[in-house]
Structures are given as C-alpha cells and as structure tokens.
C-alpha cells in the first residue's frame, strides 16, 4: 500500500482527525483552507508530531505511538515539496539540487542528477541564485531537489498554486510523468477540484 495514515493531532484550538489507506500511486488530500492539510504533510514528514496514531508509507512504519516509533525527519525518506519551496537562499540552484543528493545513501538513489535536470528542464538555471527564479522555476527546482534526495515517497503541497495557467499545465504534465514513469507514492495537497480529478487515483477529504 502507498499511504496508511491514522492520526489525531491538536494544534491550539484546531483538532485534526484523519484516517485513510490508499493503494494508489497518487493520492490527493483535499479540504477547505485552514483545515490542516499542510499539518498532515508535516506529520508524515516528521516535522510535526501527532498526539496519537500511526503513519506508514510504502509498507514501512514511520510513526506509531503504540510502538513508541517516531523516526526523525532525515530517516523518513520524504521528498517534501513545500508550498513555499524553501530553496536555500545562500546556495545556487545546482548546490540546492545536490544538497539532498549528497546526503542520500548511494544504494538508495534511483535517479541521477543529469536525469533530473533533463526531466525538469532546469539545465539553464543551475548557476542561478534562488532569489532570481520565477515561481514556476522555483517549484521545478524544489521538485528536483526532492527527487534527488532518494525519496521513498513524495509530498506535494499545492504545487500549482499561484502559477499562471500555462505554467500550471506544464507542471501538471510533469507530475503526471513522475506518477507514471517514476512510480513512487505521491500525496498531493490541493484545493483545485480539476487538478485532483485529473491526477489522483484516490481523493481523501480532510474536514
């Protein structure tokens, strides 16, 4: 199975209760804004800790309060593409791409630097500073950085938000290719019904 999530999490006044199992390659997490979709991604990536529950991805348990299991973020193998990209401002694009690549065990790498650069069409950006990139370029570099860290699964947080229609379309085609050609489980957070219907095999709604 791709994702197995069953968590109870409380942030301030807001409580998140979510349980789902998905066998699909691409699972969409939808729900009204402010309901805690990003928090769910943070829980899966190990950046937030639910009060109770279990999280397993691709058959490996990452978090389980029953077992006292809580893997550190660096050991979870999440390829997390943040909504705000979070490229490292003091590193050029190429060094951003190589950041996770250098840290990944060579045996777990399943895609090379040259392949990612070609796949995403970012060869002309390698020498640039993140601050000089457009929104679409920033997203593509962030996706490339995540792919190169030898992730076992991808977490995409609103990857098409605030892009113009043309850029969004190009990036959606790209996500389709990642889904079909690279075959790692993907969890996509989105509030756009059209995106979700087109990309996801399974839709989970957070209320």
């Amino acid at each position: 199975m791709s994702f197995e999530v069953s968590i109870q999490h409380r942030v301030g006044e807001r409580a998140i209760n979510l349980a789902f199992v998905s066998e699909e390659r691409l699972t969409a997490l939808v729900g009204p804004s402010g309901v805690g979709k990003t928090t769910v991604l943070n829980c899966i990536a190990g950046l937030a800790r639910p009060q109770r529950g279990r999280i397993a991805v691709a058959g490996e348990a990452l978090f389980d309060t029953g077992l006292g299991l809580d893997l550190a973020p660096e050991r979870r193998g999440a390829g997390y593409v943040f909504q705000d990209a979070r490229l490292f401002p003091h590193l050029r694009v190429d060094a951003n791409l190589r950041y996770g690549e250098r840290l990944a065990q060579s045996g777990r790498r399943w895609i090379g630097h040259a392949d990612v650069v070609e796949f995403l069409g970012i060869g002309h950006l390698l020498g640039r500073w993140p601050a000089t990139l457009s929104g679409g370029e920033t997203r593509r570099v962030a996706i490339g950085r995540a792919l190169l860290s030898a992730p076992r699964f991808l977490l995409l947080d609103e990857p098409f938000a605030s892009l113009d229609a043309e850029r969004a379309e190009a990036l959606m085609t790209l996500v389709e290719r990642i889904r079909d050609e690279l075959a790692i489980p993907i969890l996509l957070v989105s509030h756009d019904r059209g995106e979700v219907d087109r990309l996801a095999g399974r839709v989970v709604t957070l209320r």
């Binding site: 660096e74 390829g79 490292f88 401002p89 840290l103």
Partner: peptide, 27 residues
C-alpha cells in the same frame, strides 16, 4: 534564519548537526 529552511534540510536527509552547519551557520 528561517527555521523552515532547517526543516527542509532535515527532510532532505540532514541530521540536526549537519542542518545547523550547512544552513543556520552560513546564513
């Protein structure tokens, strides 16, 4: 220094000490 950058480094495979040395310290 934006803490979220340190979080990003952690998800990319950096242990806390490396995330400090490569993100917090240079910034």
């Amino acid at each position: 220094v934006d803490r979220r950058l340190v979080e990003a480094a952690r998800t990319l495979g950096a242990r806390p000490w490396r995330a400090f040395a490569t993100i917090t310290l240079p910034l």
